[in-house]
Design a protein around this nucleic acid. Structure first.
Lengths: 192, 192, 192, 192
DNA sequence: AATGAATGAGCATTCATTCAT
DNA sequence: GATGAATGAATGCTCATTCAT
């Protein structure tokens, strides 16, 4: 019975992941999720308090990993020079590969939930790193904060796009990621 | 009376623009829009046929300009080398400066409407230009289509981010745009 | 001004007649009527208290004529043998020819209004005449009331159908009416 | 539970039948139907997809029987002389007796639905039979099509009127039907 | 644990009607 | 007299959530 319960619980989580990714948190209906599992909508509430709890159960571990990631790479203080953004991208890729659907839900499908600002947080953090580590190395001075944010947003969008198109081929993903970062961040010197 | 009518009509358009931008077309409610104006939901229908017409009234002129822009820059055929993407970005900026909220609604808030694929079209077009004009100039061969798409997505995200953060200072916007493109596209040689 | 007022009033009546006939009283919208006249819906209320008053203004004279017709032919009491149903049909035809749209509205398009039972009244009256004048001449006894009603309903439906298909040719209408009544009431002896 | 569900489903069907018959499909409101059952409007949608499905569930079997009936009696081609209209009326009566409210809804209350032309179809079919089989036997020539239609309309109205007044006494219904048809079609020779 | 049943608030939309101007 | 503006109740329908069984 405990085993069966876990099966159902897992089924709900799986179905919800698919549904949230397919139509987004706001547009996902409990009925549709229940149908995917083959149970009734009401029964979901035996396992989760409500729709938001269901989302929580799905993304909060991933969310924790992402925040841990951010806090880890921030530990050494403002003036650190390593890890570079490329290394950070690799670490994000690792998290993604271990939590694919959850990651994509967080980045693309959680509008309407309390997680809807997670992407912004990422952008803000990346912008901070770019502003303090990348821009100072440029000769000309710029209104740095906003530019850094645009670069961060741009960078993350490209990375997340590659994630969203991931087809199971990890090697290609990592190569594309590397190429993308080389081209947009390190001026493609390796590629030219 | 005519003045008052135009005032209300304008008020509805303004409120709808805000609401569409805030929560997106799909989740914008006619009641919420009406409340912003201080009228009842039914009254909106004295001015616009339905929710879609309201969106149309807001974004269709901007939409036309954007499609004209795409068709114009596509005219010379596949082999053109000019205008460069940077020049294209400038033209997009011009359209944006004349239609700020409309532009942002089209790019961020029109899911659920007939305009929901406009951003994709932009990305697809940019990816095509990048794949045929930019990537071939690199020495190493890459799985070019996907990479081009990632770069396109990245590029547009950065551009649109600057738009979304525009505070009225056109000069700064244009400078940031230039800096951003230099850094991500032209390897920042001017800036280094 | 008085002249203009009468013009508008007449225009509203004309438009309402058309609308009521086209879609029925219940389904007719004040806005649609106003549009036919080229005025605003609100302005109709300067001439008529409400939708029902508008219907009243259109059909009540005809209604009066019809009730007068019924009361006239009923005057002589229960046992009269004349006018025959055929003569009654002729008198109804006269009223119809003088009040075509009004008549058809009363018969086909007044559901939802206080006139919606007028057709029933006709049927009831005709049934009474049929029961007291026609059925007694038959040799076999029948459950007469209900049969009389069915015959009445049938008779009126045929008559009203001819009215509804009237194309302006009065002579043909009267001939069809005669033929129809001969065939259904008087056993078509003239025609056979 | 299954029993209760069937009870409610049946209750909805019963309430809808009454409502459709009382005010017609178009003006029947889901809320009004729900009130008759003692549930909320939304709950109806747990049993039926939408208003049209609800009507379908009520009348489509009857509709099928009626169309089968028409197609059966049409099988032998244009020149058949049997079954006579009286026999056809008997067959219609059989269908009616098995589907009373459904039949009446189809004939009187389905305007606004996809079934709204069923009565017209009946009339058209009856008019065709009358024009090709009955009128040619008359000595004098008439503008036959219109007259046939009037007779058809008349005939069906009488038949349907008897249906609408049916009180459960099948024998009386059949007798009245026979008397009515004798009187209007076969000139009442049996009765005189 | 699981279900079927039910709710009530919400949605876009329509429309007869009112009213200040 | 006429208008434009506005209302409020009603429509069919959806959905997260609750609850007795």
């Amino acid at each position: 019975m405990q085993i069966q319960k876990e099966e159902i619980r897992g089924g709900i989580l799986e179905a919800a992941k698919e549904e949230f990714l397919a139509v987004g948190y706001r547009h996902a209906s409990m009925r549709a999720i229940a149908e995917r599992v083959g149970i009734t909508a009401g029964n979901i509430y035996a396992y989760f308090n409500n729709k938001e709890s269901l989302l929580d159960a799905i993304v909060s571990p991933t969310m924790a990993k992402l925040q841990e990631l951010i806090s880890n790479v921030s530990k050494d203080g403002i003036l650190m020079t390593e890890p570079t953004i490329a290394e950070l991208a690799q670490q994000i890729t690792d998290v993604f590969l271990q939590n694919r659907l959850q990651f994509l839900i967080l980045m693309y499908g959680c509008s309407g939930s309390k997680y809807e600002h997670i992407r912004q947080e990422f952008t803000r953090y990346a912008a901070f790193r770019i502003e303090t580590e990348l821009l100072p190395r440029l000769s000309r001075k710029t209104q740095s904060r906003l530019l850094a944010e645009a670069i961060a947003e741009s960078l993350l969008s490209g990375i997340f796009y590659l994630f969203s198109r991931f087809d199971g081929d990890e090697k290609t993903l990592r190569q594309n990621m590397k190429d993308f970062l080389m081209l947009t961040l390190y001026h493609g010197t390796e590629l030219l």
